[in-house]
Amino acid sequence: MAQVQQRPEEATSDQQLIERVARQDRQAFEQLYDRYAAAVFGLALRTLGDRQIAEEAVQEIFWRVWQRAASFDRSRTFAPWLFGIAHNYCIDELRRRRARPQPVYEDDDHPVLSSIADTTDVSERALQGEQQRIVADALQQLPNEQRQAIELAYFGGLTQQEIATRLGNPLGTIKTRMRLGLQKLRGILQDQGLVD
């Protein structure tokens, strides 16, 4: 399987920028913001389902990036670290508000990876676009029921028990689907050089 075209200077640049942010460099922070704000806003909007709340999420997530930059592990890559912060915040917020986004799998007419119109300048985020395509393709390669379980947890903020209840499946079945799905996803992303 062909690996993603990495642009070393771009990847290195993320690391350099977050190291500068750790030294309280605001210009470096602005560069990271410009590079990833659209991805974070897209994630927040899809998870939280409300534009106003998603805007607040972007501000809080990047504020946390600023505050936690010094604890960033230099042996890791920046994007998963950022998305970890973003996802944790969004899920906590989702649960705190006791709100749920529109269910992803209510009917077959809604595609699994339904996207909202993208207004970003793709040329400036070519690498991100490539990574997005690969991860989305990888997710599409999973069996429907595995993908469903993973997406309901990741984007819907549902626990395994809540997913089992919603889908009318035994809890053990959901756990197995989630486990096998993530293992397969990891294998695909490893082949593509996106994860270790």
């Binding site: 602005e30 913001y33 410009d34 704000a37 659209a38 991805a39 974070v40 806003f41 897209g42 994630l43 909007l45 899809r46 998870t47 998603a54 805007e55 972007v58 501000q59 990047f62 504020w63 600023w66 890791r76 994007a79 998963p80 670290w81 950022l82 998305f83 970890g84 973003a86 996802h87 990876l113 996207s115 909202i116 119109a117 993208d118 207004t119 970003t120 985020r125 991100q128 990574q131 997005q132 690969i134 991860v135 989305a136 997710l139 993973i150 990741y154 984007f155 993530l182 996803l185 990891r186 992303l189 996106l194 994860v195 270790d196």
Partner: peptide, 25 residues
């Protein structure tokens, strides 16, 4: 495993947030 999960952040379509978000941060 967490690293794999965090890559799912890329799946959501990127949408440029309003400029006010950046200014507020």
């Amino acid at each position: 495993t967490e690293e794999t999960v965090h890559m799912l952040g890329f799946v959501a379509a990127p949408i440029t947030p309003p400029v006010r978000c950046k200014l507020k941060v």
